[in-house]
């Protein structure tokens, strides 16, 4: 029972990643690409959480924390660059 739920949610997460990737490749403007990338990042944070649960290692969550921090900085810097402030 437990495993089925995990598999279903992993499938949904992979679909989400794919949608983000499509938006990332297709997006007409640069902001669209950044939005797709941001969505992919959040999905992969959840994915790292699921993997940490499956392999039973809490230490993987530290990776998620640092990854979230870096992606936040990345989005801010790209937006700043678009506005011409960098």
């Amino acid at each position: 029972m437990g495993n089925i739920v995990i598999y279903i949610s992993i499938t949904m997460l992979i679909l989400t990643l794919l949608a983000g990737l499509i938006r990332f490749v297709k997006g007409p403007s640069i902001v669209d690409r950044v939005v797709g990338f941001d969505s992919m990042t959040i999905t992969s944070l959840v994915m790292i959480g699921v993997i940490a649960y499956l392999s039973n290692r809490a230490i993987y969550l530290d990776v998620a924390v640092v990854y979230g921090l870096l992606s936040f900085l990345g989005v801010i810097i790209v937006a700043k660059y678009i506005q011409g402030g960098l």
Partner: peptide, 26 residues
């Protein structure tokens, strides 16, 4: 949670302009 993430992705694909994509996507 994962269903909500998936609807966000659907919104990301379907919405007509950037502003609405940011709304639903992120």
């Amino acid at each position: 949670g994962s269903f909500s993430l998936m609807t966000a992705a659907v919104g990301l694909l379907r919405m007509p302009d950037v502003y609405n994509r940011v709304q639903t996507g992120t």
